[in-house]
């Protein structure tokens, strides 16, 4: 019995060594925010064409670019999902490893919402007040900074409810956290004159103040799982949660989004850019793999069709905020021409 198992093991190893040469399905890596959309397109693509369904790994935007920029060849990824634009350093890495043709395709927008249970009143908060509620250090009024003293929302602004500040949000590894810090926290802290002045004199300090989230229990890192945050909000009407718009969209009977700067976080406001905390989502395509891995142009064609990413498309049903007509046309053209629109 031992002899046969050993033989089997040997066979498996030998079989493996000879494989990994050809690959007939697209491999996609990257952001977990873009994952629900890319997977939906991949499924449609696999079912309606003769190509195999692409394989999509959820690695996070940064992890995705790491894999994407590893080099060219069948053992590297063809497409990378990203919830932010590619960074200069990542382009450099790509270039060093021989990835020289990259097409950037913007696929739409995602709003980040501050939501709470329907059992509690709706919140209307400015970015400035939101910053003052969640920042680690706030101005002490004497030109310096002090640890955030605000216990209740009403300590910041008497118009806000007299309730303890309790916000559940994603951990620093999450792209949603990055975007929230960049758009909401930084947007809010620049509304405070003494911090904005800091930007010119001490950029490092400015960043530290603007990007520092409270660690005294008012802001709670609730893990990457947004479903869990939604459930916690249902159970605790005093708490607020920070997550992507699609989770609000699916749970509108239980939770409500807060108005930010007086703007409601609905589809129209995010699409028009009125809602301040929204970000663009991208996919990046490795030009050198087109023609080597079958189906890449066809996949892009499916992705950029109005039936997928249009305002009435199946991605909008999953919570994607579609781009306006003209913008879609521009990115569709780039995608179909495989334009090298990332400067190397």
């Amino acid at each position: 019995m031992i002899r046969t198992t050993l033989a089997l093991a040997l066979m498996a190893t030998v079989a493996a060594a000879g494989s990994a040469e050809a690959r007939d399905q697209i491999r996609i890596v990257g952001s977990s925010t873009v994952f629900p959309f890319t997977t939906r397109v991949a499924e449609e693509f696999g079912r309606t064409t003769s190509f195999k369904t692409p394989i999509i790994e959820s690695t996070g935007t940064g992890g995705g670019f790491k894999l994407f920029c590893q080099g060219i060849g069948v053992d590297t990824a063809d497409i990378s999902n990203a919830s932010r634009a590619i960074k200069k350093a990542e382009v450099e890495t790509c270039k060093q490893n021989g990835v020289e043709k990259i097409t950037e395709v913007k696929i739409g927008y995602d709003g980040i919402v501050l939501a709470n249970s329907k059992a509690a009143p709706e919140l209307d908060i400015s970015l400035r007040d939101l910053f003052l509620a969640l920042a680690k250090d706030v101005p002490d009024g004497k030109g310096g900074f002090m640890p955030n003293p605000h216990k209740n929302w009403s300590d910041i602004n008497p118009a806000l409810p007299n309730k303890r500040i309790e916000v559940l949000g994603p951990p620093p590894t999450s792209g949603t956290r990055d975007a929230f810090v960049e758009l909401a926290m930084e947007g809010g802290c620049n509304k405070i004159p003494e911090i904005e002045a800091l930007k010119k004199t001490d950029e490092k300090k400015h960043k530290a103040i603007c990007h520092g989230m409270r660690e005294d229990g008012a802001f709670i890192e609730a893990g990457e799982n947004d479903v869990l945050i939604v459930r916690k909000l249902e159970a605790n009407p005093n708490a607020f949660g920070i997550f992507g718009f699609s989770f609000l969209d699916q749970n509108q009977d239980k939770i409500q989004g807060s108005k930010i700067n007086g703007v409601e976080d609905n589809y129209e406001n995010i699409a028009s850019g009125k809602y301040p905390i929204s970000r663009s989502m991208f996919i990046y395509v490795k030009g050198q793999h087109v023609g080597v891995i079958p189906g890449i142009p066809e996949f892009l064609k499916e992705f950029t069709s109005d039936k997928a990413w249009g305002p009435d498309g199946y991605l909008a049903d999953k919570g994607l905020i579609a781009m306006p007509e003209a913008e879609r046309a521009k990115w569709r053209k780039d995608a179909l021409d495989l334009a090298q629109n990332v400067s190397m």
């Binding site: 498996a12 079989a15 493996a16 994952f35 991949a42 195999k52 369904t53 394989i55 999509i56 959820s58």
Partner: peptide, 16 residues
């Protein structure tokens, strides 16, 4: 790389 969205049923140890 096994935490991935895979629709097709794997037919052997070398399929994703």
């Amino acid at each position: 790389g096994m935490v991935a969205f895979i629709v097709d049923i794997p037919g052997g140890p070398l399929d994703p």
